[in-house]
């Protein structure tokens, strides 16, 4: 494998990382919004959020990616591959993040909320000043765990031609007629990426308490 090939794999890693981070940046707050809708039992929107979560949790990332990339233009929304990739990861991870935020909210101490109310704090103010500062700490380890899963499912965006790690490995393999070396290097890159996130998860667990599962 040439240096050039290795550099294009690293470039792929850059794409994987930036698309994943963008997906996380959008998906985590979107998940929180969904969780709040369900937690507050907002009429109409809460059941919609429930259906969204159930549907997205059973939709393969590949299928979602194809749907977004090929179907949105048909209904008049032009979208390039990179945006479709970010949207896929964000919409997908939001469903899982919603469940994490929601379980954090369900386990939040009722007493503290009542105490805030007796001090005359409004609902939004209570959320901003009392609930959220504690909530993100308890949810962080699980959220980081979900980020690890997102890195692994980000390979799905290769299907619409985004030149992330997997795609780069395939291309090099096709050019050199020797697919194995670039694939092993790509696998190594994924292992490093996942281990970084697992390390981050261990760290947040140590600092903020325990998460559900591991990578």
């Amino acid at each position: 494998m040439t240096l050039n090939a290795f550099l294009s794999l690293l470039n792929g890693a850059g794409v994987t990382i930036s698309v994943s981070l963008a997906g996380i940046a959008l998906g985590v707050p979107f998940g929180l919004a969904l969780a709040l809708l369900r937690w507050q039992r907002v009429p109409l929107l809460a059941p919609l959020a429930t259906v969204y979560v159930s549907l997205l949790r059973s939709t393969p990332a590949v299928t979602l990616c194809l749907l977004i990339f090929f179907a949105l233009p048909v209904i008049g929304i032009e979208i390039d591959a990179l945006s479709a990739a970010v949207a896929t990861l964000a919409l997908n991870t939001a469903a899982f993040n919603c469940e994490i935020w929601r379980s954090g909210l369900m386990n939040f101490s009722r007493d503290q909320i009542e105490a805030a109310r007796t001090f005359g704090m409004s609902g939004p103010l209570t959320f901003r000043r009392i609930i959220f500062p504690q909530l993100w700490r308890t949810c962080l380890p699980s959220l980081v765990n979900e980020m690890t899963l997102l890195i692994k499912s980000s390979t799905a965006i290769a299907v619409i031609g985004v030149a992330e790690i997997t795609r780069a490995a395939i291309r090099i393999g096709a050019q050199t007629y020797d697919p194995l070396p670039p694939m092993l290097v790509a696998t190594g890159i994924y292992i490093v990426l996942v281990l970084v996130f697992v390390g981050l998860q261990r760290f947040t667990e140590r600092v903020y308490g325990h998460a559900g599962g591991a990578a």
Binding site: K152, P179, L180, M183, L184, I191, V194, A215
Partner: peptide, 20 residues
């Protein structure tokens, strides 16, 4: 190892690697 590797990557390895 399996928990660190994306499924698609393993699929490729099986598809291109095992024939070798």
């Amino acid at each position: 190892l399996m928990r660190c590797v994306p499924f698609l990557m393993l699929t490729y390895l099986v598809y291109y690697g095992l024939p070798r």
